[in-house]
């Protein structure tokens, strides 16, 4: 259980990355979504004790973020955005090295690393230098470290950015196999929808909404999204394109007009709230 209490972050140059956010997380997998600069990474770094907040605190499994950071570090794993395994050591050694940082003994680390590498499908590549692994495999090495550590809370910052669709699906399955509570950031809406029990929407350092995918998309029941250059009534402008929401049964005629029809996704919530994800 994570309880965030009025956390804010102002950097030295005056930039406000988080403007006092409060919420609680009690589901197995929670995604934090939002456009670049929304404050997702800042929030995740604060919760994983990598960055000090300017004000506020959080309770992670009852441990206070400010007063008991050392206790929190014993129960969490945090994989930073764009983290890469050290390229001149093998996948197996990297996992074992990380486990040593968590205080695992030699044989304990060896057994846990083997189990985790098997589970994420990296066992046959265990002795390869991580430099020789594909992008997806490198990310899987980090998921293996999280799996092997058996942490209670796992923070993953953009775990699948830059990966091909097949690698992403593999990573999703690996994430689902984690025992602990997972909090991840992503700007892939389909990823949030596929993985999450709960979704937190952020924009400009604030929480816009929080809830399950079904709860959040309730207002879109029976609708589809129509995208095109033609401006319609009640359309939202996204870049050069107009987006409108129409009854699914009437959607066919828009295809004939050269427009694109898409099912409703989480990004439609941002569009309806006037947050341009591409800006």
């Amino acid at each position: 259980m994570i309880e965030v209490k009025d956390i804010s972050k102002r950097y030295g140059d005056g930039t406000v990355a988080l403007g006092g956010v409060s919420f609680s997380i009690d589901k197995k997998i929670t995604s934090i979504i939002g456009k670049n600069g929304a404050g997702k990474t800042t929030l995740l770094r604060i919760l994983s004790t990598q960055l000090a907040p300017s004000s506020g605190t959080a309770l992670i499994n009852s441990h206070d973020l400010i007063k008991n950071a050392d206790e929190i570090r014993k129960i969490i794993v945090s994989v930073p955005q764009e983290a890469k395994p050290i390229q001149y050591i093998s996948a197996s050694d990297f996992v074992r090295m990380y486990l040593s940082a968590r205080g695992f003994g030699i044989s304990e680390a060896k057994a846990a690393a083997e189990k985790a590498l098997r589970k994420v499908g990296l066992w046959e590549f265990r002795d390869k230098l991580t430099a020789e692994l594909s992008g997806g495999m490198k990310r899987k090495v980090f998921v293996a470290t999280a799996l092997a550590s058996d942490a209670d809370v796992i923070f993953l910052d953009e775990p699948t950015t830059g990966l091909d669709p097949f690698s992403r699906i593999e990573i999703w399955h690996a994430i689902k196999a984690l025992r602990g509570q997972v909090i991840l950031t992503t700007h892939y809406m389909e990823e949030a929808q596929a993985l999450s029990d709960d979704v937190i929407m952020m924009d400009r350092g604030k929480i816009l909404s929080k809830g399950s995918v079904n709860e959040l998309l309730k207002g879109f029941d029976g609708l589809v999204r129509v995208e095109g250059r033609k401006r319609r009534k009640m359309a939202y402008k996204v870049g050069d394109v107009y987006v409108s929401y129409v009854d699914r049964r009437k959607a066919a005629k828009f295809i004939n007009e050269g427009e694109i029809i898409r099912p409703i996704m989480l990004d439609d919530l941002f569009i309806k709230r006037g947050v341009n994800l591409e800006s």
Partner: peptide
């Protein structure tokens, strides 16, 4: 590598 951040936590 963001390794330090990884170990900080």
């Amino acid at each position: 590598y963001m390794y330090q951040d990884f170990i900080v936590a």
